[in-house]
Computed example of a mutant assay.
Amino acid sequence: MTLSATFLGTSGAVPTVERNTSALHVRREGDAFLFDAGEGTQRQMMRYGTGFDVDAVFLSHVHGDHVLGLPGLVQTLDFNDRDSPLDVYTPRGTGDEVRSLVTAIGATPSFRLDVHEVAPGETVLERDAYGVEAFHTEHRTNSVGYALVEDDRKGRFDREHAEELGVPVGPKFSELHAGNPVELDDGTVVEPEQVVGDPRPGRKLVYTGDTRPIDATVAAAEDADLLVHDATFSDQDAERARQTAHSTGGEAGRIAREAGADRLALTHISSRYGGAVGALKADAADEHHGETILAHDGLTVDVPYQ
């Protein structure tokens, strides 16, 4: 079951030659989502081959570097004869701004565009076997982060032991794996717990958007397989990070460590560093003892099952 994240934009508020403004494309098997859509997002989608089959867009907040790509994307989807609805999720109190942005040039898409205001603590999207939850972030405006959380998977089926207990190969295997006891020809009842292991955790992918390092992210990212965290500044510019309500690489690393996140991806890198961004990764790696990734445009990170 595929779960992957492609970074379409990893710059801070100002794009650079190498980095576009914020956008993250996430694909879970046949479903595709965008987390933020900075200016130029649709061109990045073409450049890095994600396709335009987006089911929903999740906006962390409505600063320009996170939303200005939305009108162009909606127009292109309209030109491509999209007929399925597009759901856009945005922090509470910002729905009218998003609607105005999309229709700023006076055009209304032919497909239905549904804008949903969300609040921290809500499950904003529910699908079979997973959901997307909003959590509190701390920025200079109404903002949220999002966590894609899969349901637990069934435990492993011990076929060898089932056969030892006399369960015939066939439908009774499926019944046991589904959690139902089965009766054998001699009247013996085999319970699921005899041949099925403990449930196995699903995967968790967490995206903060712009934020200070806060406990709400630690809670949302507990045992995350991939945490994508704001790392706008290096630790030597920590005061600037506080003034602008962003995080440093070291602060992102600390959050990942406290959450027990397996992997940390740093994004929203300030243009002030140019190509000299190694310090941000070093700052984060000093704090986080799992894998630390300095994201760049076009990077795809696959999220395997543990």
Rank of each mutant, 00 (worst) to 15 (best):
A231C: 09
S84Q: 13
H63N: 11
L8K: 02
Y130F: 13
T141V: 08
V182G: 01
D114H: 07
D297W: 14
A282G: 13
G106T: 05
V57A: 09
A238H: 06
G131D: 02
G179K: 05
L205C: 01
V169T: 15
S4F: 02
G155I: 06
E239A: 03
L3Q: 00
N80Y: 10
E133F: 01
G131Y: 02
G40W: 12
D198M: 14
G202F: 00
H139K: 03
T300I: 10
I255R: 02
E97D: 15
E126K: 03
D297G: 15
L205Q: 02
G298T: 15
H268T: 02
T137N: 13
F7Q: 02
I214G: 01
D223E: 10
D225P: 00
A285E: 15
T123Y: 01
D230G: 04
K154I: 12
L266M: 03
D262M: 06
N80C: 07
Y89H: 15
A162L: 13
R127I: 04
E133C: 03
A238W: 07
A285I: 06
H296W: 12
L299R: 09
D158K: 10
T137W: 03
T10R: 04
N180D: 14
V14K: 08
R156T: 15
G179T: 14
L266W: 03
R257Y: 05
L226K: 00
V277C: 09
R200Y: 04
H61L: 03
T10F: 04
S270K: 06
E258K: 09
T208V: 02
L101I: 09
H288G: 06
G131M: 01
E150I: 04
V57G: 09
D151K: 00
P85C: 01
G250I: 06
R242V: 01
T2L: 01
D262C: 08
D31H: 11
G9Y: 03
T94C: 02
A285H: 15
D81I: 09
Q75T: 06
F79G: 06
E191H: 00
Y146P: 05
A147Y: 07
A282Y: 14
Y130H: 11
P85K: 04
R28W: 00
F33A: 14
G298R: 08
I293Y: 07
T248V: 07
L68I: 05
V67P: 12
Q42D: 05
H246V: 10
R203L: 00
R200S: 02
P85F: 01
Q306I: 11
A162P: 07
G121H: 06
H25N: 09
M1K: 00
L184H: 09
G95P: 04
V218I: 12
E222F: 03
A13V: 13
E150Y: 02
R156V: 14
D235Q: 05
A37E: 11
G69V: 07
